[in-house]
Amino acid sequence: MTSPWNALIAVSLLGGFSYAAASASVLLRHRASGARLAAAWSAPTREGARLLVAQRSVVVGSDRALARIGSALLPLAAIMAVLVVPLGAHAISDLSVGVVWFNAMEVLAWAAVWMVGWGSNAPWGVIGANRFLAQGLSYELPHMFALITVAVGANSLQVNQIAAAQHGQLWFALTMPAAFIVYLISIMGFSFWGPFDQSVGRDIVGGAASQLSGVDRLAFCGGRYLLLTVGSAMAVPFFLGGEAGPLLPGWAWLLIKTAAVLAVLVWVGHRMPPIRMERFAEISWMVLLPATIVQALAVSIFVLVGWM
C-alpha cells in the first residue's frame, strides 16, 4: 500500500512543478512588460512571503467559513488528485477507478471557487462564482467524454493500465486527437487558467478572489497552480504514453512530458486572450461535445475491430 515517502515525493514534485509554472508565468509577464527577467525565479517566493505576513480580512456580513473552506479546498483537491498520478512504475495508490477519482477531485474546484466567490459577499465575487459554474457546465461534459474515450481505448479505468496500453503502439494523443485537445482545454477550464480565467477576471477586479488577502489568498492562488500541474501530469499517462521513451529511464520521461504539457499551457495562457463565457458555452456544446462523442464512437469501433 501507500508509503508516506511516496506521498511526500509526489507532493514535493507537484509543488516543484507548480512553482516552476508560477515562475514561468511571471517570466512571460516580465518579458511582455520589459521588466527584469531574472527577478521572475524568486517571484513566487516573494509573493508567498507577502501573503504569509499579510493580515487576513473579511467583508462585513460575509460567510467566512464558506470562503475559507473554499480557498483551502482548492489545494486539497489538487493534492488528492495526485493520488492516482503514476510515478515511476506505480501511482501512490493505483485505484482501479483512477480515472473516476481524478474526475471527482477536479470537480471539487467547482465547489471551491463558488464557495470563495459567494462567501466573499462582494458583487465581484458573486459574479465570478456564477461565471465559474457556467464555465464548468460547458467544459465538463467534453472533458468527461475525453476521459471515457481514453478508458475505452485502454479498456480500463486504472491509470497505469491506460499508460501501459499505449506501450509499443501509437500514443493516444495521436489516435484520439480530438479527445487530447479537449482534455488540454479542460485543464485550463478547471484551473481557471489563461483563456478560461473569467471567473477571476480583471473586468470583475479579480472576481471570486477579489476580496481574498493573506494566507487565504495564498492557498487559493497556489491551489490554482497545483490544479494546473496535476492536470498536466495526468495528460502524460492518458495521452502521451506514460513513461515510454528511449534512452532515459521511465520516471525521467514522465517528468519531461509533464513539464512540456505544463509549459504549453502556461504559454497558451499568455498568448491567448480570454474567452467570454457566453461565447464559449455555445462552442463547447455545439462543437467540442459532438467532437468528443464522435471520437468516443470511433475509438469504440477501433476496439471492436481489434485495432486497439
Binding site: L8, L52, Q211, L218
Partner: peptide
C-alpha cells in the same frame, strides 16, 4: 499529508502574520 501541509501553511502564517486581528471591512 495534504491536511498536514495545509496546517503547516496556515500555522506558519499565523506565526509570522503582522496582526492576528482579522480585518473586517466593507466590500470594495
Amino acid at each position: 499529508v495534504a491536511v498536514l501541509l495545509l496546517l503547516v501553511l496556515y500555522g506558519l502564517s499565523s506565526g509570522v502574520r503582522i496582526s492576528h486581528r482579522v480585518l473586517c471591512r466593507e466590500a470594495f
